[in-house]
Nucleic acid binder design. Structure first.
Lengths: 130, 130
DNA sequence: GTATCTGCAAACCATTTGCATAGAT
DNA sequence: ATCTATGCAAATGGTTTGCAGATAC
């Protein structure tokens, strides 16, 4: 926890109580790919006075410094705290996301598709309801 | 073109001038993964009186009957007219999408990840700007 | 002391919906 | 004739922003 807060500080951002709690909440439930509202609720348990706009602008900053990424699922922004390339199995009907770590598949994809960037995400959208 | 309109009719939907033009526009530029507004502009070239809500509700119907799918890119809904499993290389910074047809990769993914559904899409999000 | 951050409230914008009229079957 | 589709206009909802006061440094 302290280490991530240090990352925030070293990125030139001021360390406020709000940001400490936002980073803590991301560490606690980030792996669940929470929506902004879900994350907001967790943060408010610790810091009831925090506003949504503070959460929002802080997340933007954290995204800029590369600490998190986001993606959309059914119209809601979801947090991606794992900033290494990996695979998300996204069940659109269930509104659920599951992380897959499989270096071999990633290597195959990179090689066969000629992906040069080290910043990528493989979202596999599964539509079960038709 | 007629064939797709027939699909619409056989799905139990009424064939109106609006729907004919919407299907035509999808056939013309669907492969470019247009946003709803881009599609709307194309349709209006042929049918200037069509409303956005007609486009919107018709797209919902077309999605229900399995003719198209949609996904999000940078907060906008994009049309996916290729309803076979395939790979989209999505450059988030450029706001661009490129289709990849590669049965071998799809088979590897299905096998290694245990994907049972025949309705899936592989969206590879590439973030170049950080 | 000063530049950044916070919280409130209002704006934005891409949909999404209600409903009266029009039209396909 | 009936039931679905259209278009208008208003509502929704998830962000996104302006700004005055507060705070980290």
């Amino acid at each position: 926890m302290d280490s991530l807060v240090e990352v925030v500080r070293k990125a030139g951002l001021r360390v406020t109580p709000q940001r400490i709690e936002i980073v803590r909440a991301i560490m606690d439930i980030g792996h669940e790919h929470p929506s902004l509202n879900e994350l907001y609720n967790v943060v408010r348990n610790r810091l009831p006075t925090i506003s949504f706009s503070t959460l929002y602008t802080t997340l933007k900053k954290l995204e800029e410094i590369g600490l998190i990424r986001t993606f959309d699922l059914n119209g809601e922004t979801r947090i991606e705290v794992n900033n290494k390339p990996h695979i998300n199995i996204i069940n659109v009907g269930e509104n659920s996301v599951k992380d897959i770590i499989d270096e071999e598949i990633l290597e195959i994809l990179k090689k066969k598709l000629g992906i040069r960037s080290d910043k990528f995400l493989v979202n596999i959208l599964i539509y079960n309801n038709h």
